[in-house]
Simulated scan of single mutants.
Amino acid sequence: MSSQSPEPDVPVRRVDRILAFTALGLAAASIVCFFAIIIGTATGMHQEDFGSGVWPVVAAIPYWGLPAAFVMIIVLLAMSFIRKGRAGSRP
């Protein structure tokens, strides 16, 4: 017995996809960089080694990327709820 959902289908907008994939990419990059720092520390790198080369950028990505990804996901959820609410109230 199949029944249709009372809510109409709401199309996915381009902005939603951009937010979703950007948040996913930032979160994935942050996790990879976090593990790179853990592995670098476990292999015997000293604190002064992390201050040169590409390491400051690797350290900054989890610091800024995870909160930015979290905010993007919250914005995406809010936009989705608002859009579904407006679509549900239409006659």
Rank of each mutant, 00 (worst) to 15 (best):
S3P: 00
F35W: 09
E48P: 00
Q47L: 12
Y63T: 13
I31S: 03
G88F: 05
L26T: 01
S3Y: 11
V57M: 13
P62L: 10
V58D: 03
S30G: 15
A59H: 02
V12T: 15
R13W: 12
L76C: 02
Y63W: 11
F70C: 11
V54N: 02
W55T: 00
R14F: 03
M1K: 12
A42M: 14
L24H: 04
T22E: 02
F34R: 01
D16S: 14
I18C: 06
A59F: 05
R17E: 01
T22M: 02
E48D: 14
V58N: 05
F70E: 04
I73M: 11
M79S: 08
D16Q: 15
I31F: 04
V75D: 03
P11W: 07
R83H: 07
P91S: 07
P91M: 05
G25D: 02
W64G: 09
A59M: 12
Q4G: 01
F35L: 13
P6W: 06
I18Q: 02
S89T: 04
I31P: 00
G88L: 07
V15N: 09
A60W: 11
M72V: 03
H46M: 08
A27P: 01
L26M: 15
A36W: 04
E48W: 11
F70Q: 05
I61V: 15
R14A: 03
R13F: 11
A87E: 15
M45L: 14
M79Y: 06
F81D: 07
F70N: 06
M79H: 07
R86K: 14
P56D: 07
R17A: 01
G40C: 02
Q47V: 09
R14P: 01
W55F: 08
L26Q: 02
A36K: 09
G88W: 04
R83N: 03
F35E: 02
M45D: 05
S2I: 10
M1S: 14
G88Y: 03
M45K: 13
I18L: 15
V71S: 08
P62T: 07
M72A: 15
F50R: 04
A28L: 15
M45G: 00
V10G: 01
G25P: 02
A36D: 08
A68T: 15
I39A: 11
I37A: 09
G51K: 12
A59E: 12
A29N: 05
I39L: 12
F21L: 10
D9V: 09
L19K: 02
G40W: 01
G88T: 01
T41G: 10
G53M: 04
M45I: 00
G40M: 01
Q4K: 10
D9K: 12
A78N: 08
V75H: 03
D49L: 04
T43V: 11
P8C: 05
A78L: 14
V10S: 04
A69F: 01
M45R: 14
P6K: 12
G53N: 04
S3C: 08
Y63K: 08
A20T: 03
R86W: 12
S30R: 00
S89N: 12
H46E: 13
G44I: 02
L26E: 03
A28D: 08
P11K: 12
E48H: 11
A68E: 08
T43W: 06
P11H: 08
F70H: 06
W55I: 01
I82F: 13
A42Q: 08
P67G: 07
